[in-house]
């Protein structure tokens, strides 16, 4: 049985990895995708379905970890749509 705490933890881990993408498009896509799929499956009640969704998420976390690490090996120019951070 997957606990609510574990699901939230997975959600947090996924988001943290998503933020690590250097490329704006990848980063925003990953954030949006994680958000949307958790919202979509919010109403799951059967333990088997939740477990399946949870395991799926774990696999995706591994994928995100790999890809965001690779993403950091390359440099990307900032896009015009990206807000520039003002450093004082």
């Amino acid at each position: 049985m997957v606990q609510q705490k574990q699901v939230l933890k997975l959600y947090k881990n996924l988001l943290e990895k998503a933020y690590k993408f250097d490329n704006y498009n990848f980063r925003e896509y990953a954030k949006r995708r994680i958000h949307d799929s958790f919202k979509e499956h919010k109403s799951l009640t059967k333990p088997e379905e939740i477990a399946q969704f949870y395991n799926n998420g774990i696999n995706n976390l591994a994928l995100l970890t790999r890809q965001s690490t690779i993403s950091q090996m390359y440099t990307f120019d900032k896009l015009v749509v990206e807000p520039l951070k003002q450093h004082k």
Partner: peptide
């Protein structure tokens, strides 16, 4: 916010 959004807000702050 629900529990998911709260986590999201905190991650945004962490980052």
């Amino acid at each position: 916010l629900d529990s998911l959004d709260t986590v999201e807000a905190l991650v945004a702050l962490e980052e």
